[in-house]
């Protein structure tokens, strides 16, 4: 684990990030960009650390996380159950397939005004938007995984005396797990993005709102802070999901 972490590739990968920060610093120090528009990186990260310990900023993070998790959880539950049901039952498939074909490429963010009208400006509309956006990648990859389960796995379980309805939970669900988790990973990143955007478009709290507030007062530093925070949140959540994935898929090849 540690040896992999310090492999030369890691240094190669850190290089461009360091480079970006160096160019950023260079632009400011050599006077190409005024500090008002582009605050130096040291200043931005200092401000980030300073903000992270304040209660007010922690509340913004909490508001964003609540919406993110609620929306993502709804998307996982709906996506996995509809996906499996569509793969298992031809009648459900015949209904779900065309609806998904229509709804998947529809830009869900366009529904946001309608959600605001129907559910109000609070948590409900944002959570629904997150769920609607994260639903389809999860649903589609679940369906894909469940409909490509190796036939002989199912036969093996049936021959061992597993009833048909149990096959769904004992074989199809675990066998589709790699695919489901891939969908969840995409859905999670989308949730991060969407919750932030929804808060930017209209909200009274959350990280997206913090960015908009800063933009209104032209506080460039405070605009960077929520952006970096959501990026870090995304990376941390992605890492956690990755850990869950390698635990759940420990038996699968190339997990």
């Amino acid at each position: 684990m540690m040896s992999r972490f310090f492999s030369p590739n890691v240094f190669l990968g850190i290089a461009p990030i360091v480079l970006v920060i160096a160019v950023w610093q260079g632009l400011v120090s050599f006077g190409f960009a005024p500090a008002v528009l582009l605050p130096p990186p040291g200043f931005v990260f200092g401000r980030l650390l300073q903000q992270l310990v304040t209660f007010a900023f922690q509340q913004e993070i909490a508001a964003t996380l609540i919406r993110l998790f609620a929306g993502f959880a709804i998307a996982v539950v709906l996506g996995v159950s509809i996906g499996i049901a569509a793969a298992a039952n031809p009648a459900i498939n015949a209904v779900v397939r065309p609806i998904v074909r229509v709804l998947a490429p529809l830009p869900k963010v366009a529904l946001y005004p309608a959600l605001l009208l129907l559910l109000g400006f609070g948590h409900g509309s944002k959570i629904t938007l997150v769920a609607a956006d994260a639903l389809f990648p999860i649903l589609l990859s679940t369906y894909y995984g469940a409909s490509t389960v190796e036939q002989k796995l199912i036969w093996s379980a049936m021959a061992a005396g597993t009833p048909r309805y149990e096959i769904l939970f004992k074989v199809v669900l675990p066998a589709a797990m790699p695919s489901i988790l891939t969908g969840c990973r995409i859905g999670l990143v989308i949730s991060c993005i969407v919750v932030f955007l929804a808060e930017m478009i209209t909200s009274t709290d959350g990280l997206g709102h913090a960015l908009v507030t800063a933009a209104r007062t032209f506080q460039a530093v405070d605009m960077f802070v929520p952006l970096i925070t959501i990026s870090l949140l995304g990376l941390i959540l992605n890492g956690l999901l990755g850990a869950l994935r390698s635990y759940l898929l420990r038996g699968f090849p190339e997990a």
Partner: peptide, 15 residues
């Protein structure tokens, strides 16, 4: 369960 298959592809449960 009175007839037990063994497949060329093994078909073991990977999980």
């Amino acid at each position: 369960p009175d007839r037990g298959p063994v497949f060329q592809e093994f078909a073991l449960f990977p999980w």
